[in-house]
Amino acid sequence: MEIAIQLDRVSYTYPGVSSPALKDVSLAVPAGQICAVVGANGAGKSTLAFTIAGFIPHFYHGTLQGEVTVAGKKTQSTPLSELVTQAGLVFQNPFNQISGTKFTVREEIAFGLENLGMGRDEMLARCEAMMALVGIGDLAERSPLGLSGGQIQRMVIASILAMGPQILVLDEPTSQLDPVGRREVLASIRGLAEEHAMTVVIIEHHLEWLAANADRMVVLADGTIIADGSPGEVLTDEAAWQRGLSRTRYTEAARQASARDCWPAGRRLAVTLDEAEEGFRAAWTS
């Protein structure tokens, strides 16, 4: 199995700070996997995203120990301008990711390609393909400043994908969106992973979506990985709950049912709607 992202005993301390934001983190993400990263605020999730995308150590200097390999390239020794074509990073605030110099969505998506020095015909073709991919083809001639938060975030994802990365790192891409925007963005991400076999690392608080869509879940607390496994295993892990991991509404329902002997004995607690339905049906029929 090809490994897209490899972190080997990585620790990182921001400049001017004494305690490390990441402590001895080791992680291997196979190509094509959707890896969810969850944890409380200040757990080190964004730092992990910056490390994978190469912004640490190229943008945030600080002290980085250990080795980070992304798409076969050591991030410490590869220029950031090269890394961004291997691992694209999408941030929380959609409005801060608009270049601020373009007047249409198509031009905005082409911004990164212009910086790469791509020819105009290829640029146009990529723009059209990426807009279709995230479902914003009808917005091509609209001003980026006139879009909703969800539309901007999808435009940003298209802009990043246009640069051809094999890996997409999303740092809470829906945290500043309304429910409609959140649904639009998450549907686009799911489509990307299913149809284009991209490696996706997503930091997200929407556990129900992660439980149904992620292949793997990593829990960070105080800069270290405290749980790593399938969403079903991690989200029902009592030790992780005690370290502050939230439960999906289905896990909570199953947990309370279990406490009242209304959940099948020996069955793992539900983390998705389908699992909850199956569990309650089984409890009802037995």
């Binding site: 995308a53 912004f55 190229h58 943008f59 950031l80 301008s81 961004v84 074509t85 694209g88 990073l89 999408v90 941030f91 605030n93 801060n96 990711q97 608009i98 270049s99 601020g100 198509r106 031009e107 082409a110 911004f111 990164g112 390609l113 212009e114 910086n115 790469l116 020095g117 791509m118 020819g119 105009r120 640029m123 146009l124 723009c127 940003v156 802009s159 990043i160 640069m163």
Partner: peptide
């Protein structure tokens, strides 16, 4: 916001050396 804007520009290869092209 300045920091995040700078990160977003870097994510789009803004400081990449070499010739830049233009869609327009």
């Amino acid at each position: 916001d300045v920091e995040e804007r700078a990160l977003a520009l870097e994510a789009r290869g803004f400081s990449r050396p070499g010739v830049k092209t233009s869609l327009i």
